[in-house]
Structures are given as structure tokens and as C-alpha cells.
Design a protein around this nucleic acid. Structure first.
Lengths: 89, 89
DNA sequence: AGTTATCCCGGTATTAGTATCACGGTCATG
DNA sequence: CATGACCGTGATACTAATACCGGGATAACT
């Protein structure tokens, strides 16, 4: 066991992450946002659809900066419905 | 070119990320923090020393939650000295 | 109907993140 | 000195993230 595979909870969390980001994108097109932050539309789509549950930190940071989403709020909304790790409480 | 290698700027940013996290850890030992957040001490060490410039998003989130570092502040401090992308200005 | 633009999905290739193992160094304690 | 705890580094193994390529579906517009 060298690298633990992502758990279903991780995927669930990734789905919520994608939902928040998609909602924040609003009417803007994937392509324009992806181009603005310097990443491929494929990657953005995978993140939004939750197929990439744990993107790189700065990928999310750049995305949030572009979309005007506070990182703390994003993290909070992703972990909010996750009863597995209520350590913040 | 299927996956662009990390640029020197990425490594620089990762080093700053590690510095901030290490400073936030304070007198606590790596092992205790790593155990608290459920990751191996080796990984935490690599993040703090900047040898892992772009960790997974939730890895940083969990770490910040444990260390009490606001994500927005962390991202800001990492990108502060980076003249390559002053898009937030 | 043709074109364009957006979204979705599959596969493939390459790099990066994470975990384990192993060795070495330092410091405190016995 | 021996032992243990902590930090640092290197190698290795395996999975995940990212980018590119192909195809397809829907809608708007000419």
C-alpha cells in the first residue's frame, strides 16, 4: 500500500467542490474560465463534475481567485456535509 | 506535452507554502501534526520543505484547519511575492 | 442544412503527490 | 555507550492530476 486510493468520501467531497465551483462560475463558459486561469477546459470540466476529487491546491486557489470564491468558504461548504471529519466543530 | 512540468515559479510558490505552514506549526512536532491530520510525517516534511510544491487541495485544507491558518491568508502569502501572476491586484 | 459554440465522455501519455522503507544526523535520557 | 525520539534525505511503488486527442449531443444562428 504505497498510495491510498481515494475513498468514496473523497469522491463525495470532490463532487461538492465541483458543484460549488460550477455554481460560482455562473453563466460564464467553461472555456473562458479555464483560459483565464491558464488551465485546459478538460481539467476544469473534470473538477466541476467531480471526476477529479482532489485537484492541486493552487489549481483551486487560482480558480477561486478568478471566480471570486473565498477559499475558507469553499472548504467549509465541501466539508460541511461530511460527517466523517467534523474536527472543525 | 500531456502534462506540463512544474515551473520554477511553482517550486518557489511551494517553498513559500511550506514556510508558512512550518511557521504555523510552531513548536509542535511534525509527527504529532501529521498524525493529527492523518497523513505520514514524510509527506508533511516534503510539503514544508517545498519538495512537494503543489499538494492536493484538501491536504492543505486539513493542514490549515489543524494549524488554524486561514486558507485565504495562506494563498495570499504564497502568491504575494510572485510577480508572475498579480491578477488579484 | 451547415456552422458555430457549448457541454459531456472515453482513452492515452506524462508528471506529480503520497506512502513505505532505509540510512544518517542530532539531542535527550537511561 | 545504548536507546529512543525527532528531523532530514534518498529510493521505490503506486495512484491521481493534468493535458491532448477523438467522438458525440444539444442549441442558436446564418
Amino acid at each position: 500500500m504505497v498510495r491510498v486510493p481515494l475513498t468514496p468520501q473523497d469522491h463525495e467531497r470532490g463532487r461538492r467542490l465541483g458543484e460549488v465551483l460550477r455554481a460560482a462560475r455562473g453563466p460564464r463558459s467553461m472555456t473562458s474560465v479555464a483560459t483565464a486561469v491558464g488551465m485546459s477546459p478538460e481539467t476544469l470540466r473534470k473538477i466541476e463534475t467531480g471526476r477529479v476529487p482532489t485537484p492541486a491546491f493552487f489549481t483551486v486557489v487560482t480558480l477561486c481567485t478568478e471566480l471570486g470564491v473565498p477559499l475558507d468558504q469553499l472548504a467549509d461548504r465541501c466539508a460541511a456535509d461530511d460527517p466523517a471529519e467534523p474536527r472543525s466543530a
